[in-house]
Design a protein around this nucleic acid. Sequence first.
DNA 1: CTAACTCCCTGATAGC
DNA 2: TGCTATCAGGGAGTTA
Length: 274
Amino acid sequence: MPELPEVEVVCQGLGPLVRTRKILSVSFSNKKLRKPFPRAKMYSRVEGSFILGVERRAKYIMLRLTGKSVMLFHLGMTGKIGLFDRDSPRRKHDHLRFLLDNGKEMRFNDVRRFGCVEVYSEKELRENDPFAGLGPEPFSEDFSADYLLNKARGKQVPVKSFLMDNRVVVGLGNIYANETLFAACTHPHTPVNRLSRLDWQRIVTKSRLILKKAIAMGGSTISDYENVSGEAGYFQLELAVYGRQGQPCSRCGQPVVRSVLAGRATFCCPVCQK
DNA sequence: CTAACTCCCTGATAGC
DNA sequence: TGCTATCAGGGAGTTA
């Protein structure tokens, strides 16, 4: 489900709903997510704490808590966070429930269980940074044509796989990597060492444009993404190539072609993207 | 080292 | 109706 725009929309929606709220108790399902629940830390660091704020880093949702604690959520492919009345019926695949001091419950639901939840103290965060090794945020100055040109030196990975690599840049997943390359007129299979500084500049500019627009439109709902209020996004209506194999390219009318790159569905217009 | 492949898991959909 | 195969927004780990 969620790439940078979807995670950003969730964070923006969640913040006002939970900021200043106290977490009274935590409940777990009997199935583990990608990693086992950090139960001990949930009881010692999360229960009884207040939520100070919600931020996004890469595709993580970060809740800052009193007591110098941080709780991280990763939505994986099908993770969802929502606010519900404490007595409302639980849904299938609700794996975590946080009872708040206003009668609401924050619930983490994840069908495929590729998501995860972690709890850190600020000290642990500094000493054992879970974000170490991640590349820059797409909207940061560090994400530049020069940076990419340098990072790509001597590598032959296809540019689409490169953009989806967290160590290169965070937040771009399969949808937005495909869309960025279409907008930048760059073929997804191009080995990265063949791209010029100008090519990279186009990629930087277009990726930011697309991510920004996707955030403004509430993200892309392909099958089941929804924001904290259970609403779908609209950016899927704007997708130029993702999922559109056989349909005419919006620029030249030739059919969009689907291929597979590193096991991921890849879409491009072989005429417009060189 | 790089790049490709495999696996984690459930559910929707297509084809027989 | 029901079976089987394929595919899905991510990412970590293994293999050649």
